[in-house]
């Protein structure tokens, strides 16, 4: 069964890399816009003042946009990539389906 339900966008910002690091340079994107990615699939390689890191994708979905080209310095908290993900109802619940309601009740118009 394929899901063609609604999608919502999620923007992924450069996470806190620890070690007091406040920025990182984009070494290499491992995905491209339009590409479908799985959660935890390698997303991008970054270089910090100490080391090179590989950042996994936080989402399953389609890469909508990349916000920094290779070689650019990105500060912690700045957006890296935006994903289009199938809409879930957040942490709980389900997205309601848009269906035409069925009915059993018929009305009789009032006498004018």
């Amino acid at each position: 069964m394929t899901h063609t339900g609604p999608t919502s966008e999620r923007t992924f910002a450069l996470p806190d890399l620890g070690e007091g690091l406040v920025e990182a340079t984009v070494l290499e994107w491992l995905v491209q816009p339009g590409e479908r990615v799985e959660r935890n699939q390698p997303l991008v390689e970054l270089e910090t003042a100490k080391s090179a890191v590989e950042i996994p994708s936080p989402h399953t979905g389609v890469v909508a946009r990349l916000h920094a080209e290779e070689g650019r310095v990105v500060a912690v908290g700045e957006p890296l990539a935006t994903f289009a993900v199938e809409a879930g109802a957040g942490i709980v619940g389900t997205v309601p389906t848009e269906e035409k309601p069925t009915r059993r009740v018929r009305l009789r118009p009032p006498a004018e």
Binding site: L27, E28, L30, P42, E45, E47, K50, S51, A52, V53, E54
Partner: peptide, 8 residues
Amino acid sequence: HRNAVSAQ
């Protein structure tokens, strides 16, 4: 030397 280790 610093950034080769993450290369695919």
